Simulated assay, not measured.
Amino acid sequence: MERDEDGFFPLHLASAFGHIEVLKILLENYPNPREIVDNKGRNIVHIAAIMGEFNVVRYVLQDANDEVKDMINDKDYDGNTPLHLAASHSRPKIVQALTWDTRVDLHCLNNNNQTALDAFEQFKQENNPPFPQASIHKILCFTYFCIIRLTWCQLKSVGVQNAKRGSHSIEIPCPRKPEAKKTDFYKNRIDTLMVVSALITTLAFAASFTLPAGNNSSNPRQQGMAVMLNHMLFKPFIFCITTSMYGGISVTIILIWAQLGDTTLALLALKVAVPLLGVTLTTLSVAFLAGVHLVISDLSWLATTIMILCVIFVLLPLLLYTFHWFPLESSNIIMRNISFYPFQFITWLLEKDSTEGR
Rank of each mutant, 00 (worst) to 15 (best):
L294Y: 00
F237G: 00
A269H: 01
L233F: 12
T264A: 09
I296W: 05
A273T: 06
L302A: 08
F288I: 13
S300A: 14
F234A: 02
M232F: 13
A269F: 02
F237D: 00
L265I: 15
Y246N: 10
C240T: 01
G278K: 00
G291Y: 03
L294R: 02
A273L: 05
I306N: 11
V272Y: 07
T305L: 13
K271I: 05
F239L: 13
Q259F: 03
T304C: 10
G261E: 07
P275G: 03
F234L: 04
G278V: 02
L281K: 06
T263M: 15
T304H: 13
L255D: 00
T304A: 15
L294W: 01
N230I: 02
A269P: 03
I256W: 11
Q259Y: 04
Y246V: 10
V272D: 06
I308R: 13
V251W: 03
V295G: 07
G278M: 01
L302E: 04
V292L: 10
T263R: 10
V251R: 02
F237V: 01
I241K: 02
L284G: 03
H231C: 10
H231K: 11
Q259I: 04
L265K: 10
S300V: 14
A287W: 02
M232Q: 12
L233I: 06
G278L: 03
L267F: 12
T252D: 11
L276Q: 07
V274W: 02
T263I: 15
T242F: 07
W301A: 13
I256Q: 15
A258G: 15
P236T: 03
G247L: 08
L276Y: 03
L284F: 05
I241F: 00
L294F: 02
A258W: 04
G261W: 06
I253Q: 15
T283K: 01
L270T: 07
I238Q: 09
T280S: 15
S297F: 06
S244C: 06
T283Q: 05
M307Q: 12
T263C: 10
L302R: 04
T305W: 10
I296F: 09
G247A: 13
C240E: 00
D262L: 12
F237E: 00
L277S: 00
